[in-house]
Amino acid sequence: MSACNTTENAADFADLRRALRIHRWNVYGYSYGTDLALTYLRRHPQGIRSVAIDSVVPRRSSACRGRGTAPVRGSTRSSRHARRSRAAGAPIRTSRAC
């Protein structure tokens, strides 16, 4: 089980891209996948065209252990904000990459 971790999973994706002979690809991470996508980007940037992350889970959070609810609360707040913004006719703000 020591090889079952985010760093090794990121290396597996790098190996998979090469095995499939894909020159560049887009990476999408959701929840735990956000941590995996960012680890993959840091350790294996070659071959990555873009990275999109959604419902970010903070590192070391209880959500990573399957018991947390932070992503659910965050998405609920975002949904309420989006509904209020639409009702007021305001554009919906989105996060921009650095």
Score class of each variant (00 low, 15 high):
residue 19 A to T: 08
residue 19 A to I: 03
residue 20 L to Y: 05
residue 21 R to K: 15
residue 21 R to E: 14
residue 23 H to M: 08
residue 24 R to K: 12
residue 25 W to S: 12
residue 25 W to L: 12
residue 26 N to V: 09
residue 26 N to E: 12
residue 28 Y to Q: 10
residue 30 Y to V: 07
residue 31 S to Q: 03
residue 32 Y to N: 10
residue 37 A to Q: 05
residue 39 T to S: 06
residue 39 T to Y: 06
residue 41 L to P: 01
residue 43 R to E: 15
residue 44 H to W: 03
residue 44 H to S: 00
residue 45 P to F: 02
residue 46 Q to S: 13
residue 50 S to R: 11
residue 50 S to V: 04
residue 51 V to D: 06
residue 51 V to T: 05
residue 52 A to G: 06
residue 53 I to M: 06
residue 53 I to W: 02
residue 53 I to P: 06
residue 56 V to H: 09
residue 59 R to I: 05
residue 61 S to L: 01
residue 62 S to F: 13
residue 62 S to W: 08
residue 63 A to R: 01
residue 64 C to K: 11
residue 64 C to S: 14
residue 65 R to H: 10
residue 65 R to Q: 13
residue 66 G to K: 04
residue 67 R to A: 10
residue 68 G to A: 01
residue 69 T to P: 07
residue 70 A to I: 04
residue 71 P to E: 01
residue 72 V to F: 11
residue 72 V to R: 12
residue 73 R to V: 09
residue 75 S to D: 10
residue 77 R to C: 04
residue 78 S to P: 02
residue 79 S to Q: 13
residue 80 R to C: 09
residue 81 H to T: 10
residue 81 H to S: 13
residue 81 H to P: 00
residue 82 A to D: 14
residue 83 R to A: 14
residue 83 R to F: 12
residue 84 R to V: 01
residue 85 S to C: 09
residue 87 A to L: 14
residue 87 A to Y: 11
residue 88 A to Q: 05
residue 89 G to N: 02
residue 89 G to P: 07
residue 90 A to G: 08
residue 95 S to F: 14
residue 95 S to P: 08
residue 96 R to G: 06
residue 97 A to T: 06
residue 97 A to D: 08
